[in-house]
Amino acid sequence: MKSDVKFKNNTILLAGNLYVPSEFDEAKKYPAIVVSHPGGGVKEQAAGLYADKLAELGFVTLAFDASNQGESEGTPRYFEDPYARTEDVRAAVDYLTTLSYVDTDNIGALGICAGGGYTVAASQTERRIKAVATVSMVDIGSLFGEGLGRVVSVEEQIKLLEQVSQQRTAEAGGADTLYVTYVPQELEEGMTGTMAEGHDYYVTPRGCHKNAPNRLVFTSFGPILTYSAFSHIDKFLTQPFLAIAGSEADTFYFSQEAVDKAASQNKELFTIEGATHVGLYDLPEYVNPAVDKLAAFFSQNLK
Rank of each mutant, 00 (worst) to 15 (best):
A46Y: 00
Y118Q: 09
L49G: 13
R150W: 01
A109L: 02
S72I: 06
V138C: 10
Y78R: 11
S67R: 14
A175W: 03
I140E: 10
A51P: 08
M137Q: 15
V154C: 01
T61S: 11
S67V: 06
G147N: 11
I107Y: 05
G111Y: 02
K53W: 01
A46R: 03
V164I: 08
V132R: 08
A84F: 02
V180A: 11
A91G: 03
F144L: 14
A109Q: 06
D88A: 08
V132S: 04
Y101M: 04
A51N: 07
A63R: 03
L148H: 09
G116A: 08
Q124M: 14
R85V: 01
Q124Y: 01
I129G: 06
R128I: 10
A51E: 02
S153D: 09
Y83F: 15
G147K: 09
L143V: 10
E126W: 04
L54W: 03
Q167Y: 00
L161P: 12
L143M: 13
L54F: 07
G108Q: 06
E71R: 14
L178Y: 05
F64A: 06
L110Q: 13
G174S: 06
N68C: 14
L54C: 09
D103V: 08
E126R: 04
T125L: 04
A55W: 08
F144C: 12
T119Q: 08
E146I: 00
E146G: 05
E126I: 03
K130A: 09
T75W: 00
T169F: 04
R90M: 01
G117R: 07
Q163W: 00
A133L: 05
A47C: 10
P184F: 03
A55N: 06
Y83Q: 11
F144T: 12
G48E: 05
E156W: 00
V164K: 03
A47Y: 05
T181P: 02
D103L: 03
G173M: 02
E87Y: 01
S123K: 05
E156C: 00
T86V: 15
G115F: 02
